[in-house]
Simulated scan of single mutants.
Amino acid sequence: MSDPTMLAMALHLRDAEKLSLRDIAPRLVITRSKKKGQHPSPATVLRMLRDHDDQMAADAEMQTQNDHAVGLGGVPVLHPAIVPRPHRRTPPPTPGPTGDTGGGVERVQHL
């Protein structure tokens, strides 16, 4: 529901003008979706700003790790969202000498 323009305005109102969420929400206007022309709720503004702050904190942490790795002569760490993860497919179990695939519980006979 939020767009970059609404986020930028909310950040400006929060940081520069020190307004509360209840004061920010009526000043914003939704420009997309079925609620176009309406004002977001304070809860929506809270989520939007919290998501932005969380992303900024994650980016700052990643930058700190990169600076530390490069300072130690290491390779910069890529953001987890950028690094492709290999698809892990485990092969099916192969039957052993007794024909057991190893998937079940082994029974032990006690003498």
Score class of each variant (00 low, 15 high):
Asn66Glu: 08
Ala69Phe: 13
Arg47His: 12
Val83Ser: 06
His52Met: 05
Gln63Gly: 02
Pro91Phe: 08
Leu78Thr: 15
Asp23Ala: 14
His12Ser: 07
Ile82Tyr: 13
Pro40Val: 01
Glu17Phe: 00
Lys34Asp: 13
Ala25Ile: 04
Pro84Gly: 02
Pro76Ala: 12
Leu46Asp: 10
Gly73Arg: 08
Ser20Gly: 06
Leu78Cys: 15
Val75Pro: 11
Thr90Cys: 06
Asp59Ser: 12
His79Pro: 08
Asp15Arg: 13
Asp59Gln: 14
Arg32Tyr: 07
Ala60Asp: 14
Met1Phe: 03
Pro91Lys: 14
Lys35Cys: 00
Gln38Glu: 14
Leu7Ala: 00
Asp59Thr: 11
Leu78Pro: 15
Asp15Pro: 11
Val75Tyr: 14
Met1Glu: 04
Asp67Gln: 12
Leu78Ser: 15
Ser2Glu: 06
His87Asn: 08
Leu21Ile: 01
Arg47Leu: 12
Asp54Leu: 14
Ser33Phe: 07
Gln63Lys: 11
Ala16Cys: 08
Pro91Ser: 14
Gln55Glu: 15
His12Lys: 07
His12Ile: 00
Gln38Ala: 06
Pro86Cys: 01
Arg32Gln: 11
His52Thr: 09
Leu7Cys: 01
Val77Cys: 09
Asn66Val: 11
Gly73Trp: 05
Val70Ser: 09
His79Ile: 08
Val83Arg: 13
Pro91Cys: 09
Leu78Glu: 15
Leu28Phe: 03
Leu13Arg: 05
Glu61Asn: 12
His12Gly: 02
Asn66His: 05
